[in-house]
């Protein structure tokens, strides 16, 4: 278990370094970052000044090491546009996005796992068909469009829910659904497949031959094993959701990281963009690492021996 954890940690760190390198090189995509920063009316002298102030005149390797070194201690530099510390802005926005992501994930799991279990218990019946049809439809709905449709009906026509902002928990209902439903089909299919697999296994037959009640067979013996792969999927999907929150936060005007990213892209605020990409990527890396550990913990075949 320990060796497994250490190995996974080493890979995670290596991935994080690679991602930081990619993120750093983003500023050179548009050519000369100093020129881009200075704007179209800048003189040659202005550009030179900016280059010196921001350190763009140093060798790229030195620039990268400086940037990474600062990033490691939580200093992502200064926002060109907001004229403030990037890190402090990010850390005020991060909790909002986390809340949204957690709510969306909860919604997805609460819908997908029971549906998957039900479908697996009664394969090829009406409930199974309904679940699979919902999955197929869910996978084909673009989330930004679904969000707008919800806004139209629930927000405008029926006036049930607030359309924008992040003032109360009601504000998070539609965004969470819009962000979460997209994950539902994958989780549901995996739960269903896992349950079908487990329910036909020998140890479930043993459990029934021992006279265990259906509830114990289903929850203690079947679900426990079927849910192991779902944990990994949920972690991965949570990471994707945080990345995808840019669209949903923009639509619902939620003051989170996604909207900050969107604003920074529009303002060409490079340090901010870099920092957000790096933070989200690292978050994903940590998440998958934790999911692997949780997986190993849930599956004694990995944990013990």
């Amino acid at each position: 278990m320990l060796i497994f954890a250490v190995k996974r940690l080493a890979v995670a760190i290596l991935v994080a370094i690679t991602v930081s390198l990619l993120t750093f090189s983003m500023i050179y995509l548009s050519g000369d970052p100093a020129m881009a920063l200075a704007g179209e009316s800048a003189t040659q002298q202005d550009i030179e000044n900016i280059r010196r102030v921001y350190g763009y005149d140093k060798p790229i390797v030195i620039q990268y090491i400086n940037w990474l070194g600062n990033a490691l201690v939580g200093d992502f530099g200064h926002s060109h546009y907001l004229k403030t510390d990037v890190a402090s802005v990010i850390f005020t926005r991060l909790p909002v996005t986390m809340t949204l992501g957690a709510a969306a994930l909860s919604f997805a799991l609460l819908l997908a796992i029971p549906l998957g279990v039900l479908a697996a218990m009664r394969p090829n019946t009406l409930i199974d068909r309904i679940a699979l049809t919902l999955a197929v439809i869910g996978q084909a709905l673009p989330s930004f469009w679904f969000a707008l449709i919800m806004i139209y009906w629930f927000g405008i026509v029926w006036g049930m829910l607030p359309i924008t902002g992040s003032a109360s928990w009601l504000n998070f209902v539609m965004p969470s659904v819009a962000l979460g439903y997209y994950v539902t089909p994958a989780v549901m299919r995996l739960t269903r497949a896992g349950m079908l697999d487990v329910l036909s296994s020998d140890y479930i037959r043993t459990a029934r031959a021992k006279g265990l009640r259906p509830v114990a067979v289903l929850f203690k013996h079947a679900l426990r094993n079927a849910v192991i792969p779902v944990v990994s999927l949920a972690a991965v999907q949570f990471g994707f959701m945080l990345g995808g929150s840019i669209v949903i936060e923009t639509i619902f005007a939620i003051n989170g990281l996604g909207q900050l990213a969107w604003e920074s892209i529009q303002r060409a605020d490079l340090p901010m963009m870099q920092a957000i990409v790096l933070v989200l990527a690292c978050f994903y890396i940590v998440l998958t690492f934790l999911a692997d550990l949780l997986n190993a913990f849930l599956d004694p075949r990995i944990r013990v021996g």
Binding site: S201, D202, Y203, T206, N225, R301
Partner: peptide, 8 residues
């Protein structure tokens, strides 16, 4: 395969 791998 007759014993549940998840429990002692």
């Amino acid at each position: 395969t007759s014993l549940n791998p998840a429990y002692t």
